[in-house]
Design a protein around this nucleic acid. Structure first.
Lengths: 351, 351
DNA sequence: TTGAAAGCGCTAACAT
DNA sequence: ATGTTAGCGCTTTCAA
């Protein structure tokens, strides 16, 4: 923190001591009345409640937290809060958590493992009650392992990571990608391009694997020149698409591994004057608003995003309440939503 | 909170006491060395730093906070984190805040004044250092007034509220709406419909005012039947659009006051078989990804969303550092982005 | 230059 | 049924 000014200009907050004084009881009795435990005389309890009400007593959660060793806060560390996928999950988690009177602290890792480590350190220093994390790196996560060892309740979402003994929620990326590419193959495509996002994140790697397996199973060679690596932003995906489709023997189809990239591909294809599906067929991973607004609408592999947040909270609360079961990992199936962005590769020529 | 299990299964965290013991100094000296203030002997300081390093000392932010009277946390209370407008601001605020080593706690009010009040109470109990709030109600905000009175640094964004003496950031909703409707009028429209979101939120009310003023200035009556009230969700906007365009004398143009409603209108118009801009001209408030993907692209009033988050943080940090200037309120201008969704009302017939 | 000690606000074991 | 008291981990006088 930088040089702060005066700590707090306001008048001193009312403490339990004030309440006790007004109610003419001890602090202990006041606490008992307010928190509803132990024996309290009816009359005394009444006076305390009245005093608290009149003084506008709030309780100091920091003191409570210090006393009890932790804050009623859950940390959420998405890759990027601006990604609609994570925004949706954050929203759902927030709603669920509010039911159990806990707050949500959101800090995005920006997909940077180093930044993720700092954020987790911070959350630990805050003694948060548990965390839901979309890990930025698929391997070598000693900080996560250490946290779990130390007993911090942790649920990993969206990405599998090796060797961290905790609950996790993912979707079947490999299967979803396999289905998408299979659909393209079934429509007669053999030069199928892929844009993916390096392999740092397990999600992307699995989608790549599904792509490769499907091609191999269909006797199609996996060609370097058809695979473009791009960061997961609209801008980078535009470049990657242009690279891919400026080659002499143009791909007839494209598979993009997330919605930001699908958006970029759409933009790039349009600017290159290539129509969907006449010139290029397209399937994207992850459903998104835009997919139904284009003409034709985009065929996508949808993830059950609405289920992830609530389940993550449930798993986390179980752990917080002391569950000692072995780590569970839930893997959701994906669903191919066929819309209009795929056609036979000869479709364009026949017109 | 509900019945929690064991507080924390892990081993006890290392405290400054442990560090002091290992370094063979007192806790006071250890604290001085670690926080770099007061006199500390070079040798002692070295030993302390070493011990802290070796033990993996983290400091306990809760204890620090209790001691100092507040947490290094900023609260952010958007209307809805899923709204891309707020997601973007949350993202920017997070980035800015990280620079000054503060964390961001996000809790969405779901546009419910009651829930907003609870959230603010919570944040206050946490002794957060300041808040950035998009108030859910435009009037009668005694809880906000009280907070400011008590010295809580507060920056209001997106919506003006009467009588809360604090910094605020808004955009020129009235002017933007006026410009949008003016553009429609200039294109020959006189039956211009509006979908807005009740008047609870000042933003919506101002946009309505801009619409009405523009019509009046152009000698066009403001007709009840052309104005639909709808909640700010895609679904409700669909209903409202259908109501509006099922009337005998159909409007020739539509102005929607936020991007969710624009999306709904697009969907509804499409399902009613009405084309843009042949049958209906459309202008929306707030630019959004989708607007450039439709055919034709949608003309919108854009807000400078990228500037809001950073400025809010700057204002807030100024206050936290003790600035006593009178409340500043920044009002950004909007910008009409003309794309293809507006045509002359006779355009359709002449084809 | 360092240490002892008080105290932030709260809870809970213990005593009455 | 209620009060006394210790102590959570830290910072910061005050005294040495």
């Amino acid at each position: 923190m930088e040089g702060d000014g005066p700590p707090f200009a306001g008048k001193r907050a009312v403490t339990i001591k004030d309440v006790a004084a007004v109610a003419e009881v001890s602090r202990a009795t006041a606490a008992r009345a307010l928190n509803g435990y132990g024996y309290v005389g009816g009359a005394a309890a009444e006076r305390v409640r009245e005093a608290a009400e009149r003084l506008g007593y709030r309780g100091n959660r920091i003191a409570q937290a210090l006393r009890q060793g932790q804050m009623p806060i859950i940390g959420f560390v998405p890759g990027d809060i601006q990604n609609p996928f994570f925004a949706r999950i954050a929203h759902d988690v927030d709603i669920e958590l509010r039911r159990s009177r806990r707050s949500l602290l959101i800090a995005s890792s920006e997909e940077d493992p180093q930044q993720e480590r700092e954020i987790l350190d911070n959350l630990r220093a805050l003694n948060v009650r548990g965390m839901i994390v979309a890990p930025a790196s698929g391997e070598d996560n000693p900080h996560l392992v250490r946290m779990v060892r130390e007993g911090m309740p942790l649920v990993l979402i969206d990405r599998v990571v090796a060797g961290v003994p905790c609950d996790s929620i993912t979707v079947d990326n490999e299967g979803g990608a396999h289905e998408a590419v299979g659909y393209l193959v079934a429509n007669g495509h053999r030069r199928i391009a892929l844009i993916h996002d390096g392999s740092r994140i397990a999600t992307a790697r699995e989608r790549l694997a599904g792509y490769a397996r499907c091609l191999t199973e269909n006797g199609i060679a996996v060609e370097e020149r058809l695979i473009a690596v791009s960061q997961s932003t609209v801008e980078h995906a535009i470049d990657a698409t242009i690279r891919l489709f400026s080659q002499p023997e143009r791909p007839t189809a494209l598979f993009t591994v997330d919605s930001l990239m699908t958006t970029g591909a759409l933009l790039a294809l349009r600017s290159m004057g290539l129509s969907i599906p006449q010139d290029v067929s397209l399937v994207g991973f992850d459903d998104f608003d835009l997919a139904t607004f284009t003409d034709p609408q985009i065929t996508v592999v949808a993830q059950p995003v609405a289920q992830i947040g609530p389940l993550a909270v449930k798993m986390l609360l179980d752990r917080i309440r002391g569950s000692e079961e072995p780590p569970r990992s839930k893997r959701f199936a994906t669903r191919l939503i066929v819309r209009g962005s795929v056609a036979h590769p000869d479709f364009g020529r026949h017109r």
